[in-house]
């Protein structure tokens, strides 16, 4: 791997500085009649080894944000500091070499249609002027890692969506990147394939130490692999923190919308008092609702419930409709408070 040493540009800081820092990052598109603000004043810190999620609805600015990180879109304001180097200060050729250490995978896979799986993985190595033989050896190893060792001669048109994304991941890993940017990488895949691709990303993070940034509109992607999350809405970061904290107590409207169990019934019973209770890893084993109804002598209606696995711990949430009786309501709140069960009223 001697070739790689020469590819490192700028000074490499060895201290505790974060891997990626976004400072007041903004991008405004001015090609149309009206300027369009895609992202504004984004401040994020991504540590080495993180699996960092950015979640938001479509049009919130997620795609622009991830493209600003590797300067596929040049930010109009602020800075991107990668490994201690301000990307904005780099010459074009230096930027190109830096990009080899920050790979990207896409929703549409974006494989070269006229190249085999193996040749696709070789592409970034050709760009980095690695000798053909060494490149092919490395590409073979990477295809093994992503579980496609037997499909090296297949063309993208002969592969399924999940297999294509595996080739894309192998290709992205070819230049030993420090960070892998994932732009809606699982959005075009079915739930089972999504799960296996996310498992693969998790494995790559754990075993190869690659920091991962995930852009998605699906909460389940964040839950399954991320340790930290930022919520983006209307060009701004509205909330960020550890996934479990944001999940237990979402503060922003958009985060609640993304986290709350999706039920049609929520609309129909609008107007009555509703409570979302959250179980952390411990209370998930207690029969909370049974105890609650027994102790408070009040019946509650379960409008929706689900459990999620965040960082290996079980988290459950439940949306309860409270009885009309105000005394019963206060007994319930009292019960929740004394049992220290996190809850919040939802309207």
């Amino acid at each position: 791997m001697k070739e790689w040493a020469s590819l490192f540009v700028g000074k490499k800081e060895t201290g505790e500085s974060p891997l990626i820092e976004l400072k007041h990052l903004g991008k405004t598109f001015r090609d149309g009649a009206k300027p369009v603000v895609a992202i504004k004043d984004i401040n994020l810190t991504i540590e080495d080894g993180d699996i960092f999620g950015v979640i938001g609805l479509s049009g919130a600015g997620k795609s622009t944000l991830i493209r600003c990180i590797n300067f596929l879109e040049k930010p109009t304001e602020g800075q991107v500091i990668f490994d201690g180097v301000d990307l904005g200060s780099l010459k074009h050729s230096e930027l190109l070499r830096t990009r080899q250490r920050m790979s990207m995978i896409f929703q549409g896979f974006n494989l070269l249609a006229q190249r085999t799986a193996l040749e696709n993985v070789c592409y970034p190595l050709e760009i980095a002027h690695v000798k053909r033989k060494a490149a092919r050896e490395k590409a073979r190893k990477l295809l093994e890692i992503v579980g496609l060792g037997d499909r090296e001669k297949a063309y993208p048109s002969q592969l399924s969506g999940g297999q294509k994304q595996r080739v894309a991941i192998a290709r992205a890993l070819a230049t030993d990147p420090k960070v892998l940017l994932c732009d809606e990488a699982t959005s075009a895949l079915d739930p089972n394939t999504t799960r296996s691709i996310l498992e693969l990303l998790k494995k790559i993070n754990a075993e190869m130490g690659v920091t991962i940034i995930v852009i998605t509109h699906e909460m389940k992607v964040i839950e399954q692999i991320c340790n930290r999350v930022a919520v983006i809405d209307q060009s701004h970061i509205v909330e960020q923190g550890l996934v479990k904290d944001v999940f237990l107590a979402p503060k922003s409207r958009i985060a609640r919308e993304l986290i709350l169990p999706q039920t049609e019934a929520v609309e129909e019973v609008h107007g009555e008092r509703k409570v979302r209770i959250v179980f952390d890893g411990n209370s998930a084993f207690e029969p909370v609702i049974s105890n609650l109804t027994l102790e408070c002598h009040a019946a509650v209606n379960i409008l929706g419930a689900d459990t999620k696995n965040i960082d290996g711990k079980a988290y459950g949430q439940m949306l309860l409709q409270l009885p009309e009786d105000e005394n019963a309501q206060s007994r319930i709140f009292n019960y929740l408070n004394t049992r220290k069960i996190p809850y919040e009223e939802v309207c």
């Binding site: 190109l96 990009r99 080899q100 549409g108 974006n110 970034p124 760009i127 940017l181």
Partner: peptide
């Protein structure tokens, strides 16, 4: 040629 493929090539530092 698919614009996404060109973007992928750019993201890998192609000149």
């Amino acid at each position: 040629v698919d614009a996404g493929v060109i973007e992928a090539a750019e993201s890998m530092g192609s000149s």
